[in-house]
Deep mutational scan, measured.
Amino acid sequence: MMAYMNPGPHYSVNALALSGPSVDLMHQAVPYPSAPRKQRRERTTFTRSQLEELEALFAKTQYPDVYAREEVALKINLPESRVQVWFKNRRAKCRQQRQQQKQQQQPPGGQAKARPAKRKAGTSPRPSTDVCPDPLGISDSYSPPLPGPSGSPTTAVATVSIWSPASESPLPEAQRAGLVASGPSLTSAPYAMTYAPASAFCSSPSAYGSPSSYFSGLDPYLSPMVPQLGGPALSPLSGPSVGPSLAQSPTSLSGQSYGAYSPVDSLEFKDPTGTWKFTYNPMDPLDYKDQSAWKFQIL
Rank of each mutant, 00 (worst) to 15 (best):
Y4A: 00
M5E: 00
M5P: 00
N6I: 12
Y11V: 03
S12M: 13
S19R: 11
P21R: 07
V23Y: 10
P31E: 02
P31F: 15
Y32T: 02
P33V: 10
S34M: 10
P36N: 08
R43L: 15
R43T: 15
F46L: 13
F46V: 09
T47M: 12
S49M: 02
L51R: 07
L57G: 14
L57I: 09
F58M: 13
Y67K: 11
R69E: 14
R69S: 15
I76V: 10
I76A: 13
N77T: 10
N77C: 02
S81D: 01
R82H: 15
V83C: 14
N89Y: 13
N89C: 15
N89E: 15
N89A: 14
R90M: 13
R90D: 14
R91D: 14
R91L: 15
K93Q: 14
R95P: 14
Q96R: 03
Q96D: 09
Q97Y: 10
R98F: 01
R98P: 08
Q105R: 11
Q111N: 03
A117F: 11
T123C: 07
T123H: 06
R126M: 02
R126F: 01
R126Q: 05
P127G: 09
P127T: 06
T129H: 12
D130W: 07
V131C: 06
P133K: 07
P133D: 07
D134M: 06
D134E: 08
S141W: 01
P145A: 08
G151K: 09
S152N: 08
S152F: 09
I162V: 01
E168T: 06
S169P: 06
L179Q: 04
G183H: 11
P184F: 13
T187V: 13
T187M: 10
A189N: 04
P190G: 07
P190I: 15
Y191L: 07
Y195T: 00
A196T: 05
G209A: 10
S216D: 01
G217Y: 12
L218Y: 03
V226Y: 10
Q228H: 11
Q228R: 14
G231K: 10
G231R: 13
P232S: 01
L237R: 02
P240Q: 09
P240I: 12
G243T: 03
S245G: 08
Q248L: 14
P250D: 03
S252Y: 12
S252C: 12
S252A: 06
L253T: 03
Y261H: 03
E268M: 12
F269H: 00
D271R: 11
D271W: 13
P272R: 13
P272M: 11
T275H: 10
F278G: 00
Y280H: 00
M283L: 11
P285G: 07
K289Y: 10
D290Q: 12
Q291E: 00
A293N: 05
A293W: 11
W294Q: 00
W294F: 01
F296N: 00
L299T: 01
L299P: 00
